[in-house]
């Protein structure tokens, strides 16, 4: 089953917005079952990296290899079909649908029923959707409108949506923003279990350093579009450049 080589290989990725280099030469690899954290101060280029990996932004240059296939510049849909699920920093869900229907839509699309089925959508893949909502703790809210959820719950829903097509690679942009500190650990522990059990490669950004150091196998540090450090939690904590950009402290809370 497991293909040789990393699930994701990123080489020398670049993106500028009107002369401002948001991402300037980022390279890294990510293996199946591994949890990699991408950290850095606000505006470092983390979300821009994510958007290039999942197709929302076309890279200026550089390569994105997914299981050995070059996917850089492909449309989000094409990349999703190849097994990449993601959550957004500013959540994106279907506000006029229930929580369950949001997940059902991902399942319907995954099973190629968008055009082919004339049955009511809310009757399709009900059990599968509930099975995805349970682990993220959204089962009780399945009937609620996504448009009226609390922010932390939207993040949970997004995770369920991202998992609907059994992804090989999961991208989570600030998955625990808006949650109480106690809930953060739980959600990330879930991601950890999934990564292990299903061999999913996980890349995530996070401002809560306790979460990062507690859960990540490896950490990348981005500053002004460049990777300035890479290593285990202990290595990153000890790195003087990292300490410098985080004002000489192991900062703990989201710095907005």
């Amino acid at each position: 089953m497991k293909s040789p080589g990393p699930v994701l290989l990123v080489e020398n990725l670049h993106k500028s917005f009107g002369g401002v280099a948001a991402v300037a030469g980022v390279s890294f690899a990510l293996d199946a079952g591994e949890m990699l954290a991408l950290i850095g101060p606000n505006g470092a280029g983390k979300s821009t990296c994510f958007n290039m990996l999942s197709g929302q932004i076309r890279p200026d240059s550089g390569a994105v290899m997914l299981n050995g296939e070059a996917v850089g510049g492909m449309a989000p849909r094409a990349i999703w079909r190849r097994g990449v699920g993601r959550t957004f920093q500013i959540t994106a869900t279907f506000a006029s649908m229930t929580v369950r229907e949001n997940v059902q839509m991902a399942l319907i699309s995954h099973h190629h029923r968008l055009w082919r089925s004339l049955r009511p959508a809310r009757r399709l893949f009900v059990a599968e959707a509930e099975a995805l909502l349970g682990p993220v703790g959204m089962a009780e809210q399945a009937e609620r409108a996504a448009g009226e959820l609390a922010y932390g719950d939207l993040k949970r829903l997004e995770l369920a949506i991202a998992l609907a097509h059994a992804p090989r690679l999961l991208l989570m942009d600030e998955p625990t923003a808006g949650m109480a500190p106690a809930e953060r650990g739980g959600l990330m522990a879930l991601a950890r279990r999934l990564a292990n059990a299903r061999d999913i490669a996980v890349l995530f950004t996070e401002h809560d350093m306790d979460v990062v150091f507690g859960i990540a196998d490896r950490i990348l540090v981005l500053d002004r579009g460049r990777l300035i450090a890479e290593g285990s939690g202990a290595e990153i904590r000890a790195d003087p450049r990292v300490r410098a950009i985080y004002l000489g402290s192991g900062e703990t809370s989201g710095g907005h």
Binding site: A75, P76, R77, R81, R86, F88, M105, L114, H165
Partner: peptide
Amino acid sequence: LRAEAIGI
């Protein structure tokens, strides 16, 4: 954004 991100 979400639609495109789940293949719609």
